[in-house]
Simulated assay, not measured.
Amino acid sequence: MMQQIYPQVQHPFQFELNKDMHIAAAHYIPHEDAGKCQKVHGHTYFVNITIAGDELDESGFLVNFASLKKLIHNRFDHSLLNEHTDLFSDKDSNYFPTTEGVARAIYEVIQKDLNTKENKPKCVQVFVRETPTSYVVFRPKNKEEQV
Rank of each mutant, 00 (worst) to 15 (best):
N74S: 14
I23R: 02
H84S: 02
L62E: 03
H11N: 15
S59G: 05
S93C: 11
P7W: 08
A26M: 05
H73G: 12
H22W: 07
K117T: 10
H41Y: 12
H11C: 06
L114C: 13
S67E: 15
G101A: 06
V102A: 03
I51D: 05
H41M: 09
E16M: 06
V128M: 06
K120Y: 03
I23V: 15
R139F: 10
M2T: 15
M2S: 14
V136Y: 05
S134K: 15
H78W: 08
L87C: 04
D54E: 13
E130A: 10
L81W: 01
A24D: 12
L114K: 00
E145Y: 11
K19M: 08
T116F: 03
P97R: 01
E118A: 12
G35Y: 10
S134Q: 13
E58A: 11
G53M: 08
K69Q: 13
F127L: 06
V102R: 01
S93E: 14
D113M: 10
H11K: 05
H73A: 13
F96W: 09
V47F: 03
S93Q: 10
L56G: 06
K143C: 04
H43N: 08
E55C: 07
M1Y: 03
E16R: 13
P97K: 00
P7F: 11
K120D: 14
I5E: 15
S67N: 14
R75V: 00
T44W: 07
A34H: 12
E100C: 00
T131Q: 10
P7E: 14
F13H: 15
V9C: 10
E145V: 15
Y95I: 04
F76Y: 11
N119F: 08
H31E: 09
T133R: 14
E144M: 11
K120G: 02
R104V: 06
T131C: 10
C37I: 08
Y95E: 04
Q10V: 12
S89P: 01
V40Y: 07
K39S: 12
F88P: 00
E58K: 12
V102P: 01
D77L: 05
D77P: 04
I110P: 09
F15G: 02
Q10N: 15
A66R: 11
P30D: 07
I106L: 09
E108W: 04
H27T: 01
E58S: 14
E118N: 09
I106E: 01
H78S: 08
E55V: 12
A24L: 03
R104M: 09
D33M: 10
E100W: 02
F76D: 01
D92F: 00
Y6H: 15
Q146P: 01
H41E: 11
Y135P: 04
K112H: 10
P97Y: 02
H73L: 13
G53Y: 09
E108S: 14
R139L: 12
A103D: 06
G101W: 01
C37F: 03
K117E: 13
Q14P: 04
V102T: 04
E83Y: 00
H22Y: 14
P121K: 07
G42T: 11
F13E: 08
K69D: 09
D113I: 06
H22G: 02
S134G: 07
K39R: 15
Q125D: 04
E83H: 00
Q146K: 14
T50Q: 13
D57W: 04
F138M: 07
H31Q: 08
K19F: 02
H41P: 06
E130G: 07
E108C: 06
S59C: 07
Y107D: 03
